[in-house]
């Protein structure tokens, strides 16, 4: 149950952990876009270098990244294979209905590397940024939307609460599962239908306790006179530091590098 690493904060002390979360979110979006704007191996190389640099700088054990990659390995393999066999052009290898072309190989490599980069970039963000910092930054970034009467603070608060309760609910699920297993519940074997049925003794208590928690939280918030975002000040003020400007400069350089490679070098497809 605890092995869900996608979107899990890994606390340790690194430059990336200390960067401004707003900058990290913006950079993530930029890099993801950039990953899909690579048209030749030089630009792909720049993106890969950025990923490797980020992974190394985060000082999060490589094992953690492998774990989050494991989740999507099937998608990577399937899409790569599909691309490999559906390339246009002169076949260099043919067998039955499969034919492999240079375009197909390029496509497969690009798709594979892009997905892996995508996951690694997002993992760097979630490993190095605590959920609270994330929502805080999101709230700040979405602030302009208030002019469209979107309740940014409320949305951010809901996200904070949801994220805050993920580990709690996981723990609760563990506990309830243990309690039902102690009464002989069998959740590991049997057909699909019997396994789904075996979840009922876990899900019912989980729902009941979620509602109880929600109610208790609402009462606790009202007791402290919470009334939403108007006039609230912050305990942690975000301010861009020297390291933020440096990383911004590096990111801009990488973006420029990719754009230049795309313009001046031949596209492989």
């Amino acid at each position: 149950m605890r092995d869900v690493t996608l979107g899990q904060y890994f606390p340790c002390d690194s430059v990336l952990h200390r960067l401004d979360p707003r900058l990290k979110i913006v950079s993530l979006i930029a890099f993801i876009a950039l990953t899909f704007c690579t048209f030749n191996y030089a630009s792909l190389g720049i993106v890969c270098a950025m990923v490797i640099a980020a992974v190394l700088l985060s000082r999060v054990p490589f094992k953690m990244y492998l774990k989050s990659l494991k989740v999507i390995i099937i998608i990577v393999v399937i899409t790569s294979l599909l691309n490999l066999f559906y390339g246009q052009g002169e076949p260099i290898f043919e067998w039955w209905i499969f034919k492999v072309t240079w375009a197909g190989i390029h496509n497969a490599v690009f798709v594979c590397v892009r997905i892996v980069c995508l996951i690694l970039f997002s993992s760097v963000l979630t490993f190095t940024t605590s959920p609270n910092d994330l929502t805080d930054a999101l709230e700040r970034l979405m602030k302009p939307l208030t002019i469209f009467h979107i309740k940014v603070h409320e949305i951010a608060m809901m996200m904070t609460i949801a994220l805050r309760f993920v580990p709690t609910l996981l723990e609760e699920t563990d506990k309830i599962m243990a309690a039902q297993k102690a009464r002989g519940a069998d959740m590991e074997s049997g057909s699909l239908i019997s396994r789904v049925k075996a979840l009922i003794p876990v899900l019912v208590p989980l729902f009941v306790s979620s509602f109880r928690r929600a109610y208790e939280l609402a009462v606790a918030m009202e007791c402290r006179c919470y009334q939403g975002g108007k006039g609230r000040t912050r305990m942690k003020q975000l301010k861009l530091m020297k390291r933020d400007y440096i990383s911004m400069a590096v990111s801009l350089l990488a973006i420029a590098g990719v754009v230049l490679c795309n313009i001046f070098l031949l596209s492989v497809r």
Partner: peptide, 16 residues
């Protein structure tokens, strides 16, 4: 588990 019965803390939260 049938031979060693375990009642957890706050076992009422497991009723379903």
């Amino acid at each position: 588990r049938f031979r060693v019965g375990l009642v957890f803390q706050y076992p009422e939260y497991q009723l379903f």
